[in-house]
């Protein structure tokens, strides 16, 4: 019933004069103005924002549909990174030596795609062997219990990786070894641009999937009302499996496509995980659409802190900003009474 009042049509003006929209509007204005000072701020915000959005989107999806605060999301990033380095290693020599530009462009994709697939399978295994076991027994204190489970998964995966593959970073200098290109007077490495393109394509596909496909609708339905979804003949276990698979695939994809920036090590997922958490808390837990916008917002705060203040404070400032936002909007910028993974 609160849902009804919350969603009841409000006048257009009031709708856009909310805290959320004022914040976003201000952010956009600041971003555009600062671009006159240093255009790289705008460009880099967009580029890093894409990466964070991809990472945070998966995290938000799992919380939105399954109510799991996944602290092992970073280890799935690590898995993607590791897979890509193992697959791409042998291919790299081949493509670098070839004369064909097409091969050079396509070379990195097998590694990235395999990583994505491995992530998907890992997610499905994780759901079946861990969360499903807990769900069968008890759903009491679900959020905290699953948090601890994911913390356990994280510890196990990190240390297994260390025992099996060792500590040394498996990295590459570049995926796409071409001359940096110039945008708005900012020189941008092709790798960076490509990751942005991948992120945008994946996010768009993901959004379409959630909104337009039968399965995507089923996911959203489960996130809003599990009983209702079951009544409509949706298999909860099936949706859960797919949710964790997709989210893990996104994390692994992010890890694989950032291999040139973050070499695969057992702890490589920790930093992206922290940023993804910044994003989902800022945006409102379990809200994929919010997480995507939030990814850009956090990227912007980080870029501005690094530029105007100092790198030392690059983690503190977003934290302070989020604390501030939570004071005014206790459930995040896009949080609302209505739960749904995509809907704001």
């Amino acid at each position: 019933m609160t849902a009804a009042t919350n969603l009841r049509q409000v006048p257009l003006l009031r709708r856009y004069l909310t805290f959320t929209w004022i914040t976003l509007g201000l952010a956009a204005v600041i971003l555009v103005l600062s671009a006159f000072n240093s255009p790289s701020l705008l460009v880099n915000t967009l580029v890093s924002g894409g990466m964070w959005a991809m990472m945070a989107g998966g995290l938000a999806l799992v919380f939105g549909v399954m109510n799991i605060p996944n602290f092992a999301h970073g280890e799935l990033f690590m898995l993607g990174s590791l897979t890509a380095s193992l697959v791409y290693g042998p291919i790299r020599e081949l493509t670098l030596s070839s004369k064909s530009d097409v091969l050079k462009w396509l070379g990195p994709f097998p590694g990235i795609l395999v990583a994505c697939a491995v992530g998907f399978v890992a997610g499905i295994i994780l759901e079946g062997s861990v969360f499903r076991q807990l769900r069968k027994r008890s759903r009491e204190s679900w959020v905290m219990n699953t948090f601890l489970l994911t913390a356990g998964v994280s510890v196990i995966m990190q240390n297994t990786d260390m025992l099996v593959f060792g500590n040394f970073p498996r990295g590459i200098s570049r995926y796409w070894d071409f001359k940096p290109i110039n945008i708005l007077g900012v020189t941008l490495a092709v790798d960076r641009l490509m990751v942005f393109v991948i992120a945008m394509v994946v996010i768009a596909a993901f959004a379409l999937f959630l909104q337009k496909t039968r399965t995507g609708r089923a996911m959203r339905a489960v996130s809003m009302d599990e009983t209702g979804a079951q009544m409509a003949g949706i298999s909860l276990n099936g949706v859960y499996r797919l949710t964790l698979g997709l989210s893990s695939a996104l994390a692994a994809l992010a890890g694989a496509s950032l291999l040139w920036l973050l070499p695969a090590t057992p702890t490589v997922g920790q930093a992206p995980l922290l940023v993804a958490w910044y994003v989902v808390i800022l945006a409102g837990l379990g809200n994929v659409q919010g997480a995507i916008i939030g990814g850009f917002l956090v990227a912007m705060i980080q870029q501005f802190t690094a530029y105007y203040v100092s790198l030392d404070w690059v983690d503190v400032v977003p934290t302070a900003f989020i604390i501030l936002v939570l004071l005014f909007k206790p459930s995040g910028l896009f949080g609302s009474e209505v739960k749904g993974v995509w809907e704001q």
Partner: peptide, 15 residues
């Protein structure tokens, strides 16, 4: 790191 794996497994079994 092996001890941490045991620790993680124990934590998960208990949970």
């Amino acid at each position: 790191g092996l001890h941490l794996i045991f620790y993680g497994v124990l934590l998960m079994l208990v949970m």
